[in-house]
Design a protein around this nucleic acid. Structure first.
Length: 1041
RNA sequence: GGGCCAGUAGCUCAGCCGGUUAGAGCGCAGUCCUGAUAAGACUGAGGUCCGUGGUUCGAGUCCACGCUGGCCCA
């Protein structure tokens, strides 16, 4: 006996129960070790999740993929590592800890104590790692949770040292001066990766028009435009576009100004153009700078320089430049030999040499700058200028561009090496490779340093003498250390403890400290295929698991972040691909397709989602989706998944259990051989085996969506055709071979389907498995079962075709019937079927009984020429005609359209070829649709035609009434609260016509309603109702026997 | 300015190797069925498959050039 299954189900409660059962039975441990002795391995490398906040539903999406692929491979018998990872070093952690401590900037962190601060960072990571672990378990994500790796681990950090050492040995590490985007609050530079991700906001800045008086041209000035007033203090040059036309114009108040001709409107009305010239004519002119009185400006030669990127669409076409405060400006300054003035310190305040500006923040000097310009009489105008401007992606502070010393890995040699490695990876979706290569072509050298506290301690020791060294391991550090080892001992290789170490400069012998910088966090994640696989200590183990078989991560961003760092580090260390396949997916949006934001209120918390929609539904939505496109996620779509798929599946399962229990079906007994079962059974078994094949192929290719779509189609077949068509086989009283066959077939379908679904919906399938699978040798958990194997000998395309034909004809038949307005309960005499080709006649033969039942007709007949259908449409079957006749096709088509359709259809339906001038079309090459027929209701589609007779004879009407009566009695049985299998006595009383129906169909009514006897009259002991039967009143009573 | 991706029904999306009559779900209007039932089936309305040109007997599908949107880079 199976546990009875309620038709209504609380999936969420079921998930909680299943979680508890897994825990009690320690199923996870059994799963993790299921393939310990397997010779084949599958190496999944987990991209570490940032352990800085609770997990969201977008994380759940990615973690579902990770889980699904690993579960699938487990069922396939692959040995795996199941190691989860947490990412925990870097600025994003620092920012949150700063908020918790209410610290405002780097100086306050230093006052607070770097050691305490760093410990709190570690503590935060551990806290959220624990929470994310709990959430992941709720998601049904099965990993070896007490073996998760951390990027903040010593091993991870030291392995990065090893990588940096190799880079250094190849000469790729250098310290460079560059203008970098800089966050004055965080006091650190941002790499370009960080700035492009989420770094821009719409901000209103002043658009400032300033006159730069030309030297040697009295009363003439350049009209210059800028949106960053503070940079004027560091101005050293002005750009013009050499090819554009500039104008010299006199304004109403007599000033003579130069600017782009197309921007003359900036001067307002009433100006006179004195002269026009190309920008090239202005190049080389000298001007008086706006802040020449500042000490730093002493001796600076301000001149006009050509630059082809000057835009015509904004400003004046004359761009002020401060090479110490702009990235492109700095590059041009190197080319043109311009003076470079670096105005800002770490916190965005002016450095020494700026007189009254020194010590003031860039954010507070605008008014002072305007006053000074006004005083000098060179301020022309100020306007409001809204534009997109970069902000710090962690704290939202406006960035400044600042001249700094940072550490880089040179990409000039590596670039092409990485590209070659990238090509060895299978990218899913395939455009991933193109994106990665595009990034590789365009990227600059990799800036690896960050002037912060919590992160990889860059093992670079730079001496006053200019020499620097990279330490490659903890052993080397201890060997080289000449000071500070005692303070460091017992600590992780982090600031501040590691900063105590001094080594001896191998060039000059001085004692040298580590540079203060920490590392770019993508180093932390990129080293994982080495650090977590024992690269430094156990090469044999590492070789067993490297390269990985698969990683999966959200692609926006990762091409320049994790994918990039993985490829780079693996190229440097081994010149090998870190993973054989990279699976990636797009972004999650809300149900309306808008970005999810906590502040917008449309974000969904993982816990809410898990408790309201259930994680199986969530996982199903994820897996059904094409990962290359954004996923619009919410409660509505999950609800739909539950209704459309899960409840349908559950209903089939519940149906099976109900009848299996009634019939005491025992799956341990031998089932009838498949080849002896009826067509319907062999058909669904065939579909099942095709499903096994399709799902297996899809998951082998890391594609969940085609697998899920195939499963949906199968469940639809199972529910809306197999069970629907088999119901009477389960209802009937006789326990014969046919019934056993039906039970065995449905059982096999459910058990096999359940395994196929197990990776995607681990909870529902576990619940079904535990109830359904009682056979000897079955695993206690579905997740410990072996993956089903396709049995090709059970796949029969002819059965599939026949079933599809039956479904199609049924659908057309229902369409034809619905036009008559007669209920399906009313039997009709005849069904005429027009087939697309003669070959389908045998298929029709095979399914005609199903059609009779499904459409409630007495006979089915193939439509022939003798059936007098009044009008036909004939068409060529292009899939056959096109390839056969090639360029003659148009002639064949026109000949066919000229022919008489009635004659053509007569030939076709009798299976004879159709002569069309020089051509002879085979009957299978023509498609006939019949559109109308006297006395019939017709429906036609795609070459198939179905017609039903509309005439209801007295006999048919009586039978229809009998069916109606059965229907009413069935409902009464339910209203009376009888059990499905209760036997009853039925009483009836009404007019003569109605009573005649009972008498004429006595056997049928008794059989259908489990009535042992039909009694004319009424009984007080019976549950009694009055019914209107085609205008006549009938009183019916039912009594349990 | 360069690269990548997408554009199919009101919405969200399928559509394999080109086959002439393009599908699903949701939504809308209606009908039916119901011993799987807080489901299900069917019917209907709704489509210049972004545009233009090309290849082909035949193009939603392949090619070229555009347009629009998104992402990335400059």
């Amino acid at each position: 006996m199976f546990e009875p299954v309620p038709s209504k189900v609380d999936f969420v409660q079921m998930e909680r129960d299943t979680l508890k059962w897994w825990e009690e039975q320690d199923i996870l441990t059994k799963y993790l070790h299921a393939n310990d002795d397997s010779a084949t391995t599958f190496s999944f490398i987990d991209g570490p999740i940032t352990a800085n906040n609770p997990m969201g539903v977008h994380h759940a999406w990615g973690r579902t993929y990770k889980d699904v692929f690993q579960r699938y491979k487990t069922m396939r018998g692959f040995k795996q590592r199941y190691q989860n990872g947490f990412d925990g070093q870097g600025l994003w952690i620092e920012v949150e800890v700063e908020k918790e401590l209410k610290l405002n900037d780097k100086r306050e962190i230093e006052d607070f104590g770097i050691d305490k601060f760093v410990e709190l960072c570690k503590e935060r990571v551990r806290r959220f790692a624990a929470q994310q672990t709990e959430q992941s378990i709720r998601l049904g994500y099965w990993m070896e949770w007490d073996n998760s790796y951390h990027t903040m681990s010593d091993e991870n950090n030291y392995t990065i040292w090893r990588f940096l050492k190799v880079c250094h040995e190849r000469g790729w590490i250098y310290e460079g001066t560059d203008v970098m985007p800089w966050c004055p609050r965080c006091g650190t530079g941002l790499s370009e990766h960080e700035i492009v991700t989420e770094g821009y906001q719409e901000i209103v800045h002043p658009g400032l028009y300033v006159r730069f008086p030309l030297i040697g041209r009295e009363n003439e000035a350049l009209l210059v435009w800028t949106t960053t007033p503070w940079t004027l203090a560091a101005n050293t040059a002005a750009y013009v576009h050499p090819d554009l036309t500039y104008a010299k114009a006199r304004t109403e108040n007599g000033e003579v100004l130069y600017l782009l001709k197309s921007r003359l409107s900036e001067l307002g009305a009433g100006h006179d153009v004195l002269e026009e010239m190309p920008g090239a004519d202005l190049v080389g002119l000298r001007y008086k700078g706006p802040f020449d009185e500042l000490p730093v400006q002493e001796g600076v030669d301000h001149r006009v320089v050509a630059w082809k990127e000057v835009k015509e669409s904004e400003g004046t076409g004359i761009v002020h430049t401060a090479p110490g405060a702009g990235k492109e400006d700095f590059e041009i300054s190197k080319r043109e030999g311009l003076a470079v003035i670096a105005p800002l310190d770490d916190f965005g305040a002016f450095v020494d040499g700026f007189d009254w500006l020194t010590g003031k923040s860039v954010f507070e000097v605008n008014e002072l700058i305007y006053d000074s310009l006004r005083e000098k009489g060179i301020l022309h105008r100020i306007e409001q200028y809204p534009h997109r401007y970069p902000v710090c992606w962690r704290c939202g502070t406006e960035l400044v561009f600042r001249l700094v010393d940072e550490w880089f890995i040179s990409m000039s040699e590596l670039r092409s090496m990485i590209a070659e490695v990238a090509k060895k990876v299978t990218w899913i979706p395939s455009f991933g490779l193109g994106r990665e290569l595009d990034w590789l072509r365009n990227m600059d050298d990799w800036m690896i340093s960050k002037k912060r506290f919590w992160g990889l301690a860059l093992p670079i020791f730079k001496c006053e003498c200019g020499h620097f060294e990279v330490v490659g391991s903890e052993t080397e550090l201890k060997e080289r250390a000449v000071e500070g080892l005692e303070q460091f001992e017992g600590h992780s290789p982090h600031r501040p403890w590691i900063d105590a170490i001094r080594i001896e400069c191998s060039r000059c012998g001085e004692r040298v400290a580590r540079i203060k910088d920490v590392g770019n966090p993508w180093l932390d994640a990129g080293i994982v295929p080495f650090s977590t696989l024992g690269y430094r200590h156990d090469r044999a183990y590492w070789r067993q698991w490297f390269p990985g078989d698969l990683i999966t991560e959200s692609f926006p961003g990762q091409f320049r972040n994790w994918f990039y760092s993985l490829l780079t580090m693996s190229t440097v260390l081994e010149n090998a691909e870190p993973t054989r396949a990279i699976h990636s997916y797009a972004l999650m949006r809300d149900e309306k397709g808008e970005e999810m934001h906590k502040s917008k209120g449309n974000a969904i918390w993982f816990e809410d989602a898990a408790e309201r929609m259930g994680v199986d539904a969530m996982r199903w939505v994820y897996c059904l989706h094409n990962p290359a496109s954004n996923l619009n996620f919410g409660f509505g779509v999950a609800d739909e998944a539950r209704r459309r798929f899960m409840i349908t599946l559950w209903n089939v399962y519940s149906f099976f259990i109900t009848y299996a229990n009634i019939d005491e079906f025992d799956p341990r007994n031998p089932a009838p051989p498949v080849e002896d079962r009826p067509d319907l059974d062999r058909w669904i078994i065939s579909e099942l085996n095709s499903l096994v094949r399709d799902v297996t192929r899809s998951l082998d290719a890391y594609a969940t969506d085609p697998a899920c779509r195939a499963a949906e189609r199968f469940v639809d077949y199972l529910s809306n055709w197999y069970v629907r068509r088999s119901r009477r086989r389960f209802w009937k009283s006789a326990a014969d071979e046919d019934k056993l066959s039906a039970h065995a077939t449905l059982y096999e379908c459910l058990v096999t389907l359940n395994k196929l679904l197990a990776p995607v919906m681990p909870f529902l399938t576990e619940s079904i498995h535990r109830n359904l699978e009682r056979r000897p040798g079955a695993a206690e958990s579905v997740h410990l079962e072996a993956w089903p194997k396709e049995n090709p000998s059970h796949v029969d395309p002819a059965l599939s075709d026949a079933a599809r034909l039956a479904m199609r004809l049924s659908s057309l038949g229902r369409s034809a019937r619905s036009k008559t307005g007669l209920k399906v309960r009313q039997p009709l005499q005849k069904l005429l079927v027009g087939l697309r080709s003669k070959n389908e006649a045998s298929a029709l033969e095979a399914v005609s009984v199903q059609l009779l039942e499904e459409l409630n007709v007495k006979e089915v007949e193939v439509m022939g020429p003798e059936t007098e259908v009044s009008s036909f449409e004939v068409r060529a079957d292009m899939a056959r005609v096109g390839p056969k006749y090639g360029r003659d096709t148009p002639k064949v088509l026109s000949a066919l359209s000229d022919a008489d359709p009635t004659e053509v259809s007569a030939l076709v339906s009798s299976g004879r070829p159709v002569p069309l001038g020089p051509y002879l079309l085979g009957p299978e090459e023509v498609v006939v649709n019949a559109s109308d027929k006297e006395g019939y209701s017709v429906a036609s589609e795609a070459g198939y035609t179905v017609a039903v007779t509309t005439n209801v004879t007295e006999e048919l009407a009586s039978e229809g009434s009998a069916r109606e009566i059965v229907h009413r009695i069935q409902n009464m049985r339910r209203s009376a609260g009888f059990d499905i299998s209760d036997r009853i006595e039925t009483f009836y009383r009404g007019g003569a016509a109605a009573e005649a129906v009972f008498e004429a169909h006595d056997g049928y009514i008794r059989q259908e309603t489990l009535s042992d006897v039909l009694t004319r009259g009424e009984s007080p002991a019976a549950y009694t109702e009055s019914h209107d039967l085609g205008g006549a009143e009938v009183t019916i009573g039912v009594r349990r026997l």
